[in-house]
Simulated scan of single mutants.
Amino acid sequence: MKTFLLTFLIVFVTFGYSQETEREDEIKKLKAVVINAQTDQPMESVHVVNLNQVIGTITNKEGEFSITAQVNDTLYFTFLGFKSQKVRVTNDMFKFKNTKISLTELAYALEEVIVRPYSLTGYLEIDVKNLPLNTAFQYSISGLSVGYEAGSKNPSAVTKVLGAILNPADLLRNLFGKKPNQMKKLRQMKEDDRIRDLLASKFDRETLTELLQIEKVDIEDILSNCNYSKSFIATANDLQILDAISSCYEEFKVLNRKR
Rank of each mutant, 00 (worst) to 15 (best):
K178H: 10
Y228L: 06
K153I: 03
E251G: 06
Q213E: 10
T68W: 11
I241Q: 06
Y108N: 12
K61M: 09
Y148T: 05
K185M: 08
Y118F: 15
L5C: 11
C226M: 02
T135K: 13
E250H: 05
L103P: 03
K28N: 01
M1Q: 09
I126P: 00
L144G: 04
L239I: 07
N167I: 05
T99H: 12
L80S: 14
I222C: 02
F96I: 12
S224W: 03
I233Q: 09
K179N: 12
L80F: 11
L133D: 10
V254E: 11
S229T: 04
F12W: 07
D204V: 09
N227G: 02
A236C: 00
E206A: 11
N225R: 10
S18M: 13
R116V: 15
L171F: 07
E250A: 09
N36T: 00
E206D: 11
D127G: 04
T104W: 14
S66M: 02
N98F: 08
L106C: 05
T78A: 05
Q53K: 14
K97C: 03
V48K: 07
N130I: 14
P132S: 02
K178G: 06
L186Y: 04
I101Q: 01
D170N: 08
A169Y: 01
Y118K: 10
N256T: 09
L212E: 08
N181P: 07
Y118T: 10
K100H: 08
K185P: 10
T57R: 06
N225I: 01
L133K: 14
R173V: 14
R23C: 04
E62V: 03
T68Q: 15
K29T: 15
N130H: 12
L103W: 04
L166T: 05
T21A: 13
Q240L: 09
V161R: 02
R187L: 14
N154S: 05
I245Q: 01
M93N: 08
G63D: 00
Q19A: 13
S145G: 04
M1H: 13
N52P: 08
D238K: 03
K97F: 11
Q19N: 13
K2M: 14
D197W: 07
R259D: 05
I141K: 00
I35W: 02
N72H: 10
A164L: 00
A69I: 05
V146E: 13
L5N: 12
M1G: 15
R205D: 06
V13N: 04
K61C: 05
C248T: 07
S247I: 08
L223E: 02
N50S: 05
T3E: 15
K95Q: 12
N227E: 08
L9A: 11
E44T: 13
M93P: 06
T3N: 13
Q182D: 14
S152K: 13
Y228S: 10
